[in-house]
Design a protein around this nucleic acid. Structure first.
Length: 269
DNA sequence: ATGGCTTGAGTGTCAAGA
């Protein structure tokens, strides 16, 4: 529920080091006025997270970080409530999940494992991790029907989401077991906000730094916003913002933004 | 081509990403 009676913009962005990308993040927040921004790959410990700089820009924040790798954060213009770290039932040293309630929306920020190569140990970890997240989401959805899962899912759900589906067939990020794990999220009642709308062909959210990947639009759509039914029904737009990918020293990922319509206040005063 | 960038760690050059 959005008590302000105005539309809400929620977004996700893998920044590939918040230390390096903080200027881009601050510029982007100022330009878009997003209400919620989920970050992945902050790659920093909580004690050096830039709370003060974000507060000066009008954003409260929660961070689940670690040195060097992983790390997720939720930034919001409204208070973050009921903050939960990690997947409680899945013991994991890697900091990949953070959940908070903002304006009555349950926000799950996730940095799903990369998996490295099909059949590798990291791939097995990825599949176990995805199954654990699905069970966590099932419980969260029961408690909070207005739920959004935002993050770097490291899965291209469909061949439309892959610049060269033949080359990527059955490769990491595109394999059938990964896509089946992604469909488990949909089976919970979540909807890919991006595909609620007509989109340009060859829309991607990540491009390799190498070999002019971005200029040649050799990308994958692996960053997603999944909405529970009440939120999907009120979703008015979802876009990938390629603007920051064109800057000097960009993240290899672009932000994805969903606009949710204001909801009518139904609760009595 | 276990390649091709980028980041972090740390001061060599590797691990990890996707």
């Amino acid at each position: 529920m959005n008590g302000k009676g105005v539309a809400m913009k929620i977004a996700t962005w893998n920044v590939n080091s918040l230390k390096v990308r903080l200027p881009h993040v601050l510029d982007w927040l100022a330009a878009t006025q997003a209400d919620v921004l989920c970050l992945q790959e902050t790659k920093m410990e909580d004690k050096v997270f830039p709370y003060a700089e974000l507060a000066a820009a009008g954003y409260q924040a929660a961070h689940n970080g670690q040195k060097t790798y992983n790390g997720v954060a939720i930034l919001a213009r409204s208070p973050l409530e009921d903050i939960r770290f990690d997947i409680p039932a899945f013991a994991d040293a890697q900091k990949r999940v953070l959940t908070a309630t903002v304006n009555g929306l349950r926000i799950v920020c996730a940095y799903m494992p990369n998996g490295q190569a099909v059949g590798s140990d990291k791939y097995e970890y990825k599949l176990r991790w995805l199954a654990a997240l699905a069970e966590y989401l099932r419980a969260e959805l029961q408690a909070s029907p207005r739920l959004a899962l935002l993050g770097d899912c490291n899965i291209a759900p469909d061949d439309r989401d892959v610049h060269d589906p033949v080359a990527w067939k059955d490769q990491i990020l595109c394999s059938e077991p990964e896509r089946a794990a992604y469909r488990q999220f949909l089976d919970l009642g979540l909807t890919d906000a991006f595909r609620l709308f007509e989109q340009p062909e060859k829309s991607y959210s990540w491009w390799d730094y190498r070999q002019m990947g971005f200029r040649l639009n050799r990308g994958l759509r692996i960053d997603h916003i999944l909405l529970s039914k009440p939120l999907a029904d009120g979703c008015r737009a979802c876009v990938i913002d390629k603007t920051p990918r064109k800057l000097e020293r960009p993240s290899d990922h672009a932000p994805v933004v969903a606009t949710l319509a204001a909801t009518v206040e139904t609760s009595p005063r």
